[in-house]
């Protein structure tokens, strides 16, 4: 089982890096660019024969406890069974 976790700053938190990227894109001529938010991405391989439900619970715990700082960040994830 593999988990793909995406971490981003909460909407209420200013993202100066995203703003800088947005500014650069506009300067390059990408006129239709709206807001840009920068985040982090993790690929986590889960060993054993975890069921979907257990894997979800484990990943959510890891994301809350370690991968994000809940004061400023939020996360979403998806699980995939490799072929």
């Amino acid at each position: 089982m593999k988990a793909y976790v995406y971490v981003s700053l909460k909407k209420s938190v200013l993202d100066p890096q995203g703003k800088t990227i947005q500014g650069a894109l506009k300067k390059m001529g990408y006129a239709d660019i709206g807001e840009v938010r920068q985040g982090k991405y993790f690929e986590i391989t889960l060993g054993g024969d975890l069921q979907q439900e257990q894997a979800s619970a484990e990943i959510e715990r890891i994301a809350r406890e370690v991968l994000t700082n809940p004061v400023i960040e939020e996360f979403r994830y998806r699980l995939e069974q490799p072929d």
Binding site: Q17, N69, I72
Partner: peptide
């Protein structure tokens, strides 16, 4: 200390990067 929850809030990237 903020990460450990002993103080509230967080320290983010400086506004000027």
């Amino acid at each position: 200390l903020c990460e450990a929850g002993l103080l509230p809030g967080a320290l983010m990237r400086n506004a000027g990067l």
